[in-house]
Simulated scan of single mutants.
Amino acid sequence: MDADPGLEPDLEPDLDGFLLARIAEDQRLAAEAAQASGRESWDGGVTAPHGAADHVAHHDPARVLAECAAKRRLVLACRDVRPDLRLLGARPAGLDIPLPPTDQHQLAALTLALLALPYAAHPDYRPAWRP
């Protein structure tokens, strides 16, 4: 399959690869936390400072692993659509969001870019990916 000449080939595979690597890291950390605690779920059985226990329980390994699986499926589905990352740089002055996607390729690019935002502080994150 030939690449669309309008796409920036150095960005397209890297954004989905970046996300899959971050998801794998999150999955590894959740699996290690479950193994270290001796249980897969922390629902209600966590001792933590007031207010923190709910947060910890909400991010228990079982939930994080399920979230990783869902995110991975979403990234792979978007990658299969061949995202058009040109949308990410297309925004009128003063707007901090890109133009609305007009087709599935732009929607896939925007979805990947939004999924990558929580990892923006990672050294491999590229500013060009910011929606």
Rank of each mutant, 00 (worst) to 15 (best):
Q27H: 10
C78Y: 03
A57G: 10
P98I: 01
L99N: 01
E8G: 06
A116E: 08
R82G: 13
A109H: 05
H105E: 14
L88D: 09
A121W: 15
A108D: 02
L114C: 04
G89T: 11
P49H: 15
L11D: 15
P123C: 14
H55R: 14
A121Q: 14
D54N: 14
A77R: 03
L20Q: 07
P9G: 07
V81Q: 11
G51Y: 08
D43N: 02
L115M: 15
D14T: 12
I97Y: 00
P127M: 09
P13M: 06
W129M: 05
A70C: 05
E67H: 02
L95M: 02
H59P: 01
A30Q: 01
G94S: 01
R130T: 05
P101V: 03
R28W: 03
T102K: 15
P83T: 03
V75P: 03
P61C: 11
L99H: 02
P123V: 09
H59I: 00
R28A: 08
Q27T: 03
L76N: 10
E25A: 13
L115A: 11
D124C: 07
D84S: 06
A36H: 01
P127H: 06
R28I: 03
A77V: 07
Y125Q: 15
R82Q: 07
D96Y: 00
P100C: 03
E32V: 15
H105G: 10
E40K: 02
L85G: 12
Q35E: 15
P92Q: 12
R39E: 08
D16S: 15
L20G: 11
H122R: 12
L11Q: 15
L65V: 00
L85V: 12
